[in-house]
């Protein structure tokens, strides 16, 4: 059921809160660098959600402040963080085995583009002078059991980032299950893209602006 027009376009924080609310209790979760880190602010870590960081830690806590700052304790974005009770440390090969082996329940990633079949492009704009930097994005995209994307639906020039086919270089093939945006939440299904919720627009508006045959 779409809540069309019942609320306006979402802010980044509202998108982050919506994702956090959808993450089940007890889940092991990896939050990608950038916008997805906002999801942590809305997760109740006391509720048993355990954050994984690719640089070798489960049970990552919030950003460190003041005396808590320790250069040996950072997140994937190299930001100092704190540990939560029950945290553990492990080396890089174990950390990525955890992803690749399907042990992580959820990861939340940013994206340049997501295709209607769930292809993800988030590591390279394809520009010739760009220095490619992939980090852990490809491992996460194919590793986590559920890959959620957090992004704005439209780029600055107004073009849709939910697309029939990605034009940017791919990070992973058919790996995204749900896309959270300022204008709506989209489920990638075998039958096509279904609009779970729309914000500040009707599903028809979104069909028109994205040029996609969205299911409602």
């Amino acid at each position: 059921m779409s809540r069309s027009l019942t609320r306006g376009v979402l802010t980044k924080d509202e998108i982050a809160k919506m994702i956090a609310d959808d993450i089940p209790q007890g889940a092991f979760v990896n939050l990608g660098i950038g916008q997805p880190t906002l999801v942590a602010d809305h997760l109740d870590l006391e509720r048993g959600v355990v954050l994984h960081t690719e640089n070798g830690m489960l049970g990552m806590g919030r950003a460190a402040v003041g005396d808590e700052i320790d250069p040996d304790l950072v997140n994937a974005g190299k930001i100092p963080v704190v540990e939560t009770p029950g945290a553990s440390y492990f080396h890089h090969a174990d950390s990525f085995a955890m992803m690749r082996g399907g042990h992580l329940d959820v990861c939340v990633l940013g994206a340049f583009q997501v295709s209607v079949r769930g292809d993800l492009a988030n590591w390279h704009t394809g520009a010739e002078d760009a220095i490619p930097a992939v980090g852990g994005a490809m491992d996460l995209a194919i590793g986590a059991r559920e890959v959620l994307v957090m992004m704005t639906l439209f780029s600055r020039d107004g073009s849709s980032k939910l697309v029939p086919e990605c034009t940017y270089p791919l990070t992973g093939v058919a790996c995204v299950s749900r896309v959270y945006t300022d204008h709506g939440v989209f489920e990638i299904t075998d039958r096509g893209v279904r609009v779970r919720e729309a914000f500040g627009a009707t599903v028809d508006d979104l069909r028109q602006r994205t040029g996609l045959a969205l299911l409602s």
Binding site: H91, H92, F96, M99, I131, G135, G136
Partner: peptide, 23 residues
């Protein structure tokens, strides 16, 4: 960035998990 753009260093980009697993 400067070395790469001026062609003075060769770069092999490897996904982080593959990098760790290859070692």
């Amino acid at each position: 960035d400067d070395l790469y753009r001026s062609g003075r260093i060769e770069l092999e980009v490897v996904p982080q998990g593959n990098l760790a697993e290859r070692m």
